[in-house]
Amino acid sequence: MKEQIYRWAGPSLWVLGLGVPFALSANWISILALFAIYAVVALSQDIVLGRAGMFDMGHAVYFGVGAYTTAILNVTYGWPIFWTMIPAIIAAALVGGILAAPLVKLRGDYLLVATIGVSQIFHLAMVNNTAGVTGGPDGIFGVGVPSIFGHQLISQGNEYLVDWGLLGIVLLLMKNLEHSRLGRVFRYLKEDELAATTLGVNARYYKILAFALGAGIAGAAGTLFASQLAVVSPGAFVFTESVTLFAIVLVGGQASIPGVLLGTVLMFVVPQVFRELAQYRYFAFGIGMIVVMVVRPQGIWPRRRRMG
């Protein structure tokens, strides 16, 4: 019985979410649209950090690569938004994979520090308007909205449904990952890399794959983010964003889908709701992160031990 509830609660909530544009105010629609986008990024961070166990503190970079790819292709070259998603995913996955290729040999804290460095370099590269295409500190304005069969999805509700749809797809992928060789290999590498390699696991290949996969999914979210906000600027992908994503996974619960979603609610939705208290946001986050870790070091909603 309990098992049944657990199995159906997630899909039911997602279906319920489809009704949001018809039931809630414009303010709530935009908050939940952003929730969907950030949840996708957080889940992709969880692939690298929570599942494969690599301390990646630069995940906002891949999100940013996706968003910039979309913004550049759409604003400068006039591509339709949906078409930009494919190059956005590829670009982000390539950046993730290429960066990971030398970095995955670093362990633990060393990898964490190196990814902090990557994050800082990316931010500076965007601010300095590298190659003259990123728009410098102000970024790129006027990113369009998606269209389906020539119909522009102008309404906020329609855009929300696209975001919610991507979240649904990614949740499905994460669910599949749990019962597959790929998901298990990530966990083997996280728990004991040496034991895994002596069983024939090519650790380097799978670690790079984890980065590329996480980056690609973050890149897809970047496309929708650019379209949702109509503007892409370096400020959205600063190091603090990477820290926040990192914290979401650990505060929520590593490799736990409900945990990561809950973490996203706490770190992204709650501040949107209490916007008048914005200046206390990070002060409260800081205290919250300490308290949660001290009280529940495994996160608020840790991974359930499957007995099946």
Partner: peptide
């Protein structure tokens, strides 16, 4: 867990 606690402390002091 300690790393996140340290990040939290950093945010708290800074803000």
């Amino acid at each position: 867990s300690a790393v996140v606690s340290a990040l939290g402390a950093s945010m708290m002091i800074e803000n």
